[in-house]
Design a protein around this nucleic acid. Structure first.
Lengths: 148, 148
DNA sequence: CTGGGATTGCGAACGGTTTTCAGTATGATG
DNA sequence: CATCATACTGAAAACCGTTCGCAATCCCAG
């Protein structure tokens, strides 16, 4: 079967090799924000003859073709997600590493306004919030209990 | 003369070596966001016997002591600024690389609200806006006119 | 002044990423 | 369907910012 991203790649006229097909499949099935090593790990499970160099190259290719987007979470390695039409941001749970996506038109508008007041036109932006669950935070003083 | 940051370091009980004094001076005099190499370059001009390793070590020390703050602008290397009480963010001019600092209580409030709605308590956050000067943007408006 | 723990300079090591190069596969063409 | 130029791949080396190990050196409490 042809994965979502594979179809997108073909639309964009990219040459579809076996490795690219596998990587596209991995990315189509991912619902998280894997880094290159993780993508490679998953790809190798489908076809063991895929090298990490090819994954790096393919990620860049897909990024340039705007099929995927790089997410820099400040942890020293690039993470990726499928490109989406709507701009969104990330809230990172510092306890679990879980990443929650959110969007806020108000926030977008406010950023536009701030940039405009400074005499600038926005060409890109990025917002990350690091946080801990409210209930965990409440527990902090008198923990200890394990989270489900 | 004792630089602003040197005084701060002594307050915090850090052992003041010649190298640390020089690096403190460099950072006190900086009004930009230098990376480690740049700090080293400036430090060497004052005292040539300072190694890059010491600069790296000192930057980390000062960061841990909360004398300076690391700024990750996504360009692959760490940049630094003096620690300030008020939270602010950065607008990066993509033409010149100039960095403009700004703060917005409204924005802070909105982020708190968003995090709260998602069930989280904020422990950190970061916002960067990349932009081009409005007047420059007008120059090339005809190219981008049809883009939203 | 002096001694010993902290700090330094050097170079080697590191982790993520890119590149080089020789061999291989792709898909346009005949 | 075979051919072929071309683009792609794997493996290893190069890269780049950063950290580390170690012997020499420095700071400052005694």
């Amino acid at each position: 079967m042809t994965s979502r991203l594979e179809a997108l790649c073909m639309e964009k006229g990219l040459k579809m090799t076996g490795q690219r097909r596998v990587i596209s499949q991995v990315l189509s099935e991912a619902d998280d924000h894997p880094d290159v090593e993780e993508v490679h790990r998953r790809a190798v499970q489908i076809d063991p003859r895929i090298s990490i160099a090819t994954v790096y190259r393919t990620m860049r290719l897909l990024e340039d073709a705007q099929v995927i987007e790089r997410v820099d979470l400040g942890d020293g390695r690039a993470r990726y997600e499928e490109a989406t039409a709507d701009h969104h941001h990330h809230l990172i749970d510092t306890r679990t590493g879980r990443i929650i996506e959110f969007a806020s038109p108000e926030l977008e508008a406010m950023k536009e306004r701030i940039a405009h007041e400074l005499g600038y036109k926005i060409v890109g932006h990025r917002l990350e919030i690091y946080g801990v669950p409210l209930d965990d935070a409440a527990d902090c003083a008198r923990d200890e209990e394990e989270r489900p």
